[in-house]
């Protein structure tokens, strides 16, 4: 059995909007083991985003327990949560969230700035290595507005990798990209997963979920289905199979 990275028990999250209580999560149990590539799926309002926020230590559950890499996050203060995010988690967002007018390299360095143990030389080296790992070695000094959407998302993935996290949390990371570029991103993530990275990926697109090892499907604050992905797609092969568009 692989090491358990994420363990969630009876997780509940309520939001209070005026007099109305919204039950976003109604008792969720979930385990993610090292090396998994999990798709968190569901329609809007199913609770998947709330789940990701809690997994990402950005929000606290109303009740229930959450162990991240063996650490119970229920008792941690705001600052301790920030430190945890800094060393244990990597985020990839739908809209990339890169700093504008800041080079790719500096964007990737950002998380390491908040780790006082890392000196500037190491910071630079690790950021360069992360950008090489996502295939952007020749674009390190480009600004975000000089990069395509796919390249920007690669920079964001490099940023999520740079602190060597135990899990990468992706929130609709292919939502803003066309099919081919989405597949390219998925190929990159599959490759990273192959090398041992644990990834949790929120999406509502079934074809994207096909690239992962397991699907967890949310509805109305519950996990309604959880299953291994049968006939898992290989992104590299699918890209080859895509028709090469002849633009006139």
């Amino acid at each position: 059995m692989m090491k358990t990275i994420i363990e969630v028990n009876q997780l509940k999250k309520d939001f209070y909007v005026g007099d109305i209580t919204v039950h976003a999560l109604r008792g969720v149990n979930l385990q993610i083991s090292e090396g998994e590539f999990v798709a968190i799926m569901g329609t809007s309002g199913s609770g998947k985003s709330t789940m990701l926020n809690i997994l990402g230590c950005l929000d606290k559950p109303t009740s229930g327990t959450y162990f991240l890499d063996g650490i119970s996050m229920g008792e941690l203060s705001k600052n301790e949560l920030a430190a945890l995010r800094n060393i244990k988690l990597g985020f990839v967002f739908q809209s990339y969230n890169l700093l504008s007018r800041t080079s790719a390299l500096e964007n990737v360095e950002l998380p390491l700035f908040y780790n006082s143990k890392i000196k500037s030389k190491e910071r630079r080296e690790r950021a360069e290595a992360a950008l090489e790992a996502v295939g952007l070695a020749d674009r390190m000094h480009h600004m975000p507005n000089q990069l395509s959407g796919g390249q920007q998302q690669r920079v964001a993935i490099a940023r999520s990798l740079v602190n060597d996290p135990v899990v990468i949390l992706a929130d609709e990371a292919t939502g803003n990209l066309d099919t081919r570029t989405s597949y390219e991103i998925m190929a990159l993530l599959q490759d990273l997963n192959q090398k041992g990275k644990t990834i949790a990926f929120v999406t509502h697109e079934a074809d994207i979920a096909k690239f992962m090892t397991r699907q967890v499907i949310f509805r109305d604050g519950h996990i309604i289905r959880e299953e291994k992905v049968p006939n898992r797609s290989n992104a590299v092969e699918l890209i080859k199979a895509l028709p090469t568009e002849e633009l006139v």
Binding site: L58, N79, A82, N86, F91, N97, L99, Y114
Partner: peptide, 16 residues
């Protein structure tokens, strides 16, 4: 605001 959100999510504390 989004930059601040990003900084917070990658481990920046309020004080930072």
């Amino acid at each position: 605001t989004r930059e601040i959100g990003l900084r917070l999510s990658v481990g920046g504390r309020g004080n930072d």
